[in-house]
Design a protein around this nucleic acid. Structure first.
Lengths: 167, 167
DNA sequence: AAAAAATGGTTAAATTCATTAACTATTTCT
DNA sequence: AGAAATAGTTAATGAATTTAACCATTTTTT
């Protein structure tokens, strides 16, 4: 056994848990790459488009299932939903403002808060990307039926609940 | 209905397909954040650690199931497995070389190729992170039994096959 | 065998996304 | 009234990423 690289060392075993992790990460990567290719044609990145979807209040976003939410979203809420820091959100919002896709309005009752909204141009981008997005996703999952997808969703939500409630 | 943000516009419907996508992306984000917290203590990023795992030939990596592979990995193979560009891999490898975690060796039969290997220090990092990694993942999936995990893995692999074979 | 095409990798320049630390302004709590 | 928490920004920095152009080597084509 002269070549260490040919076979995995014993402490690196094949397990279903670790396979799951790698496959989730890989799939997310592919989805992001897919998203980039589409969004690029509309002058936004996937990350920016995700923010636009938040401002459009896409009901499929997990954050909106956890937190009821009646007013336009805040930067701090975006940070929480995207699991990034507030300064990062500030950055992204500046870019989107420069592109004139979003606008901010002072909150009526709390002067610290700024409510975020799409401009007409912002809505237009969301509207244009939507059919491509729906078509792509239907294609991706077309090998699976409703109950299978439901079960898969439960699994994902179970993991997410666990991981976000951890400490 | 004066406030557009309160309710989602009709063209943004709630569907299981779109919910699945968001949940996969969210879970991958959380896993990456988790990984960062662990890896940080060992002086590497999650991305760098993933590369180390490739050089260690972790059998759980999906790429190794698709491509049989008897010699130490190449930069171009890493790029394919990680779904990033070759220059990006060059960058990451430079960082890891500076940290003395990897080394490159000329291929015997093709002078263009460089075979990538872990240094003893690199193996040490992989070895140290491994138990934490296993413990964290067991915890994450402990609500689910073997058959459920198997089914979930099938789902992920099905999606990945579809998405990577697309054009 | 010579020319063309493909492959493996790097360099350079730029962008995006992200972080931490320090700060301002405002609101809430005690 | 004073202290603590909350919302957001600025500044400095770094990691990961891309595209375009390039070099060297191998493989394919003619």
């Amino acid at each position: 056994m002269s070549n260490k690289s040919r076979n995995s060392p014993v402490f690196l075993e094949k397990t279903i848990d670790l396979s799951l992790i790698f496959n989730i990460l890989d799939l997310a990567n592919q989805l992001k790459a897919n998203g980039d290719k589409i969004c690029q044609q509309y002058g936004v990145t996937t990350q920016q488009w995700l923010i636009l979807l938040h401002l459009a209040h896409d009901p499929n976003i997990p954050y909106f299932e956890r937190q009821e939410h009646s007013l336009p979203i805040l930067a701090s809420e975006l940070a929480e939903s995207l699991s990034v820091t507030r300064p990062n959100v500030t950055n992204l919002l500046q870019t989107l403002s420069q592109k004139e896709l979003i606008e901010q309005m002072a909150d009526q009752t709390d002067a610290r808060r700024k409510r975020l909204m799409l401009t007409e141009k912002g809505w237009e981008v969301v509207r244009q990307i939507q059919p491509i997005r729906i078509r792509t996703n239907e294609w991706l999952f077309e090998d699976f039926d409703g109950p299978q997808k439901k079960e898969f969703l439960n699994f994902l939500q179970g993991c997410l609940t666990r991981i976000t409630h951890a400490k």
